[in-house]
Amino acid sequence: MTRKNSSPRVKPVRKYNIARYPSHEDPDPINHPQPVNFPFRKELVATLATLGILGTKASLTENGSAKNPFTLEQSGLPHQPSMFGTGQPSYLADKKAREVIDRVFREEGFTLKSNVPYQEEDNELVLDGFDENDHTGYVLAHFKNLEKDALIPWSPVNPNSDPIDQLRSRLQYKVKNEFTGKIKEHAQRTLELTDEARFRKGFADLEKEIGRSKLSLKEARHLATIPTEKKEFIAVISLFDRRFHITRGSRKFDAATPKSADELKKTREEQVGEVLKNLEKSVRQYLEWARSQGL
């Protein structure tokens, strides 16, 4: 007799990775360093606490005690670069920072997609990581991706100078120092345009082309202040945030106590390790805060 198609069958499942919550082989979540609120009525909690049987297994903290560690005030934006590379700390490599951030999101159960376009009102940018199910993610502010309004120029722009000249000089600087590949070619062609109207149009097109990968201050502000009722949590993580500065392990900061190159390297590595830990802690804190806001 042949089996009907509609009959259930025994069919082993070869690969299964849908369960993204701790298994019996993972560290016990109850003993997680971040305390878990106690989900019982206050009378019970009070009674158990009096009897001393609550132990360390749970916390009595109220929901909402967590704070957002990535406010715009903390971000160090707008950022003012220094003229000759002196007097300022050095910053984490964006690649290293992204690795840590992505790992923490993953460990906390999020599935981030990278380079996700984000558009809301007239803000249009690309998020470094975004979980589409939970509307949670982050954008990383670093030197290479900041829009002009997020950078305070070292020498103020002369308000009387010709705006076209200002655009041209900015473009020249970028062609020389920042742009690569197709954008560089496009910018080069734009620079060569002599007609003002055509130059403006070319400049606008170019901005459009590169604009999505740049983070403006306006966009950073928008993301950092999304009302929590919207249940959309996008952390603006900035490498200019003081908590992530690297001040040790360089001659300019350690000049008072001269060190060998090896010693400096070691000191720097140690501090990079500390800064990465700070970053990890802040990302966890951010997710904790987002959860307390109803993520």
């Binding site: 849908i18 993204r20 919550y21 016990d28 979540p29 109850i30 989900p39 959860r291 993520l295």
Partner: peptide
């Protein structure tokens, strides 16, 4: 598992205490 993963992601206290 999908629903449990979402509750874990939110560190829901009831979910955590109930199961762990």
């Amino acid at each position: 598992d999908r629903v449990a993963s979402r509750l874990w992601k939110r560190r829901d206290p009831l979910f955590i205490h109930k199961h762990y």
